[in-house]
Amino acid sequence: MKILVCISKTPDTTSKISFKENNTKFEESGVQWIINPYDEWYALVRAIELKEKDASIQLHLISVGGADYDPVIRKALALGGDEAIRINATNNDSYFIAVQIAEVAKQGGYDLILTGKETIDYNSSSVGGMLAELLDVPYISLATKVEVNNSAATVNREIEGGEETDEVSLPVVISCQKGVAEQRIPNMRGIMAARTKPLKVIEPAAVEALTNVVSYELPAPKAGVKLVAADNVQELVRLLHEEAKVI
């Protein structure tokens, strides 16, 4: 069996977000870069668990990004996986990214493709679904549990107000979230091994992006908190009812 895990690089969750060049670019200085948590904690770790149970599984990682992605890809390889592929292109458009991954995935004949449910920077939840469509295979989104045997997957996925269990034949694309696996810390052996694992860099396919970011903005600051004394809860209820009009 062959598994492909899609890896994005995102700012650390504690990063202060700011913009430069007239709010057209993300201010990267001082930002710590991490593997997108959904890609790492859930998609990648689950794939590693499956490989631990069946050593014949080939596990490949794929990213779309510039050379600045390499440290993050090595970090992912330190957790596990046999090799990584980086498509050498920088673009924020989900369709552009999905086409690049689809080109590689078509050649690779993967049975299972895992992504995180979204990246914590663009929050679009889009690449997995687009990839599935481009490969003409089923897509199960927002998975909370993924079990795989040779030819099929059993997946729990989030629905409104609960979960459902789905059965689907491979190949399939699945987007993963909490529940699928638990976060792991890479060990020294993994970190050493990652240095010599293959990281192939390939040039992107010619495709036009369908969207582009014109500018960014920060939310308007809050006016400031109105404090109510702990023995005057009645006043809070009055404010919520009469001023905020939310109850």
Binding site: K117, S126, G129, M130, L131, I140, L142
Partner: peptide, 24 residues
């Protein structure tokens, strides 16, 4: 809607129609 169903379906429709998607 960018809800569970929208997240599953909208990206596929976008790729199928080669239509730009703004999600969220």
């Amino acid at each position: 809607s960018h809800n569970q169903t929208g997240k599953a379906v909208a990206p596929r429709v976008a790729a199928r129609l080669k239509a730009g998607l703004v999600a969220g």
